[in-house]
């Protein structure tokens, strides 16, 4: 098992290296003077010079890359062109709302989508299955922000049950937090639920056709035990895999949802950075979210060892 862990951990390194290289090259390979691209059309020569110095654009490209990576490794993600603050500071200031929203979303997603998928597979071809599949196609097709606005319209404006926008930290109490976080979390969860319910259904359908499920039934086991102990445990690996890769989808959703609901998190930071063409911040955000993505998928990979004995040995 230790060997497996070590291999997975080491395999994450080249992925991060590719991400870093890509982010680095993106700016350098875009046609035109990188400094001018970043500064925009209205920049003064002094501003351009300042950008060139910050990014080290005078040096040969491989030297630039090495110094850039060295800085990254020492935790220096550069400085925002807009506010002159370090990117790491900006990110850490905005971290809390996004993380609490993401955790709530994942929680909602799993408790809703996995039972949906299991049920649909168990009653394959029935009206329940059709409902689940239709709901999932809808979830895939309606853009996140449209869902957000529909939810606001219904629950906040028409029914007046919940506040329209904004964010309250969980440190100020669970109820106020939930009041403001539940709509964005549901919005964010919509596509994620669609994805995971579908995957759960597909994985369960595969597993339910396996011989060992027939054996379990031939033993006279309870259908609940057959479904959850025998089938779902075997379906867990593909489901978890999609939860991991679907995380990228959620990050994309965060950007939109936070701007719909006016939540001061990483998503808003992204939108502000776009509007200001603040490239160091965008770059920092990409590196940060990719890092989180790789980390989560690494954890999921490691969890396979506990789920599947064939990996363990």
């Amino acid at each position: 098992m230790f060997g497996y862990f070590l291999r997975r951990i080491l395999a994450a390194i080249p992925v991060m290296a590719v991400v870093a290289l890509f982010v680095f090259l993106l700016l350098r390979l875009t046609p035109g003077d990188p400094a001018a691209i970043i500064a925009g059309d209205m920049a003064t020569p002094e501003q351009l010079e300042r950008i060139r110095v910050t990014l080290g654009l005078h040096q040969p490209i491989h030297v630039q890359f090495i110094t850039w990576v060295q800085r990254l490794l020492s935790g220096d993600f550069g400085v925002s062109l807009l506010s002159n603050k370090p990117v790491t500071t900006l990110i850490s200031q905005r971290l809390e709302p996004t993380i609490s929203l993401a955790l709530l979303t994942i929680f909602l997603t799993i408790i809703i989508s996995v039972p949906m998928g299991v049920l649909a597979a168990w009653r394959h071809g029935s009206w329940i299955d059709n409902m689940v599949m239709s709901a999932s196609v809808l979830g895939f097709s309606i853009p996140v922000f449209v869902i957000g606005y529909i939810l606001i319209q219904i629950f906040a404006l028409n029914l007046g049950l919940l506040p329209v926008q904004g964010f309250t930290s969980i440190s100020k109490g669970v109820v106020p937090f939930l009041e403001r976080a539940i709509l964005p979390a549901l919005t964010l969860a919509s596509i994620y639920i669609a994805l995971i319910a579908r995957m759960t259904r597909a994985a369960m359908l595969d597993v339910l056709g396996e011989d060992y499920v027939r054996t379990a039934r031939a033993k006279g086991l309870d259908e609940k035990i057959v479904l959850f102990r025998h089938a779902l445990r075997n379906a867990a690996v593909p489901i978890l895999t999609v939860i991991g890769t679907g995380f990228a989808l959620m990050i994309s959703g965060v950007v939109v949802t936070e701007s719909v609901f006016n939540i001061p998190g990483l998503g808003r930071l992204t939108v502000d950075a776009i509007l200001a063409r603040d490239y160091p911040v965008i770059q920092g955000l990409i590196l940060f979210t990719s890092g989180i993505y790789v980390l989560i998928n690494l954890l999921i990979d490691l969890s396979y060892a506990f789920l599947d004995p064939r990996i363990r040995y």
Partner: peptide, 20 residues
């Protein structure tokens, strides 16, 4: 099932649950 009638199958590899 299992108390009065039982069944064994062709492929003992696939007929047993791999994770238990």
């Amino acid at each position: 099932r299992a108390t009065r009638m039982s069944m064994i199958f062709q492929e003992p590899m696939t007929a047993l649950n791999p994770v238990l």
